[in-house]
């Protein structure tokens, strides 16, 4: 028994198995002023998301008379990382906001809300890798909480390759390890549609396919956690 545990430990620095995600926690309805909100925690990475809207979009020339538009804003608190992050947008946060918008946009339908905007704000409170994925997962719950019509929940996790092994949910230590390939991905689990896929590193096509499959399985589990958190929220509303 002890022996078995040892070999498992050798696989990853924090003792997880290759296909094991960190401990997760989800809570919906954490910000009362918002139309929808959620928190998602994976390991020690914590993301908050709030949704406002559909609300009228200003300036008027940005309005779309055919459907509502989605705006996403991802940022990190200055003290969420080891070295202080300068407040305000960076190139990194602009790009992540864009890929987040694309990842969530595939799932929602704003045809009924012409000339409006749905604003999604994501804040990383504590960062230990996988922040964009945690943000997307939280935001997807917040959109559902706000009552936005959706085809499915979007769940996101990072997969990657460390020391030749395909793993899920890299932590900071693994992410920074030399030669790591990091692949953030997001899925709509109902039809296995990929809505976020990024990669940096060096990996063969075969390994990429394996990694994405692993991500798909992980996202299925995350999706269950999201659903459970949303159901909890409705129990709360019933009791209020």
């Amino acid at each position: 028994m002890v022996q078995a545990k040892k070999t498992e430990k050798a696989e990853r620095s924090d003792g997880r198995k290759l296909n094991e995600m960190r401990k997760m926690e989800a809570k919906v309805g954490i910000i009362k002023r918002a139309d929808g909100s959620a928190m998602f925690k994976i390991g020690t990475t914590v993301a908050l998301a709030a949704v406002y809207g559909p609300r009228e979009l200003f300036p008027g020339f940005m309005q779309n008379p055919e459907k509502g538009i989605l705006r996403c804003n991802y940022d990190m608190l200055s003290f969420s990382v080891t070295e202080r992050k300068r407040p305000g947008p960076s190139r990194r946060s602009v790009e992540i906001s864009l890929v987040t918008k694309n990842a969530l946009g595939s799932a929602i339908n704003l045809d009924q809300f012409p000339n409006t905007v749905v604003d999604v704000f994501i804040m990383i409170v504590q960062a230990d890798a996988g922040t964009r994925c945690a943000g997307i997962t939280a935001a997807s719950m917040a959109l559902a909480d706000a009552g936005i019509p959706m085809r499915d929940l979007v769940s996101a996790v990072s997969v990657g390759r460390i020391n030749g092994k395909i793993v899920i949910d890299l932590d900071k230590e693994e992410e920074d390890y030399d030669g790591t390939t990091d692949i953030p991905c997001a899925f709509m689990s109902r039809n296995n549609e990929i809505t976020l896929l990024q990669l940096d590193g060096d990996i063969s096509a075969e390994e990429l396919k394996q990694a994405v499959e692993l991500g798909k399985e992980g996202c299925k589990q995350i999706s269950e956690i999201q659903k459970k958190a949303l159901k909890e929220r409705y129990k709360e509303i019933k009791n209020e």
Binding site: V99, N102, G105, M188, N192, E193, I194, L199, D202, A205
Partner: peptide
Amino acid sequence: TENDNICAVQKGGSKGIKIEELDKAIN
């Protein structure tokens, strides 16, 4: 890269892609 390894990927656009379609794209 020269040996067909993949060193960067970025999915863009507002719709998703299916997992089988990824294989096709890589090829």
